[in-house]
């Protein structure tokens, strides 16, 4: 019996997909198991793969650690502020990219990506100096501004694709029925773009939730959660690290699951 070469190739593709998947998923899985393992078991050697019983003690330990609650609130606040700022600037830019042809459009598209070339380190230190001067240092708003700068390129790309997905005809139909351009946007484009814009918002939130470097440099007292975890990492026991990791990854996972549809769409557009 001969092996169908197409079948063979398919097997190869699936194998490599499984490998890549495992590479990403295995640590997540291990961290998740560890989070729900009773603390004594974590230090046993050899450590059992599956916990002997489901326990929330490790997670509880992390959540009750001094500063964690305050940092979580700060992180949430920074995330929400980042969404507001990034959407307020990014969505109109995306709309313009999707609907208008203007001088320097291609240059602008490139410039959006070029901003990603500056490492956060280069951005964060002068930013810290300026923030101290204008009183934004160590405030959620200050961190949110830095995160907005980081999130904007992606937000503009996503919202461009979202607005491209709303047929221009619908907007024009509204205009011929008596709407101004702005009314047509509010009554027709916005409702249809809302799911996509929400996805862009969630993406922004995850980016802010996970960002460490700028948050560490721009805060002292009001640390965001990742900044606090990184700060405490060296000093803390194993169970703190596992639970911290789990707690931080969770929102990202949930959000990614929700918005993956829009991300593939996004690449569909940019590749073309």
């Amino acid at each position: 019996m001969t092996v169908n070469p197409i079948r063979l190739r398919l097997i190869g593709i699936y194998l490599s997909m499984a490998l890549i998947g495992a590479w990403v998923l295995a640590p997540l899985l291990l961290v998740t198991f560890a989070t729900f393992t009773p603390p004594p078991e974590l230090y046993r050697w050899p450590k059992p793969f599956l916990p002997s019983r489901f326990s929330t003690e490790t997670l509880a330990f992390f959540l009750t650690t001094e500063g964690v609650l305050h940092s979580t609130v700060t992180s949430l606040l920074v995330g929400v502020l980042t969404i507001v700022l990034a959407m307020a600037i990014g969505a109109p830019a995306g709309y313009a990219m999707a609907r208008f042809s203007f001088w320097g459009k291609e240059g602008f598209r490139l410039a959006i990506l070029v901003t990603r070339m500056f490492p956060v380190a280069i951005l964060a230190i002068p930013l810290a100096v300026s923030f101290i001067r204008i009183g934004l240092y160590d405030t959620p708003l200050g961190v949110a501004i830095a995160h907005t700068a980081l999130a904007l390129p992606i937000v503009i790309l996503i919202t461009t694709s979202v607005f491209l997905g709303v047929p221009r005809d619908l907007e024009e139909a509204a205009i011929t029925l008596g709407c101004s351009r702005f009314q047509a946007f509010l009554k027709v484009v916005l409702p249809l773009a809302l799911p996509g814009l929400a996805a862009a918002g969630m993406f922004t939130f995850v980016l802010s939730w996970n960002e460490v470097f700028a948050a560490t440099i721009l805060t002292v007292q009001n640390r965001t959660l990742p900044a606090l975890v990184v700060y405490l990492l060296g000093l803390s026991p194993l169970n703190f690290r596992f639970a911290g990791g789990f707690f931080m990854v969770l929102p990202a996972l949930v959000v990614m699951f929700v918005i993956r549809k829009y991300l593939t769409h996004l690449w569909g557009i940019t590749i073309r």
Partner: peptide
């Protein structure tokens, strides 16, 4: 105007 694509508002 009646558009070629109809442009009926889906929502």
């Amino acid at each position: 105007m009646v558009f070629q694509s109809y442009a009926v508002f889906p929502h």
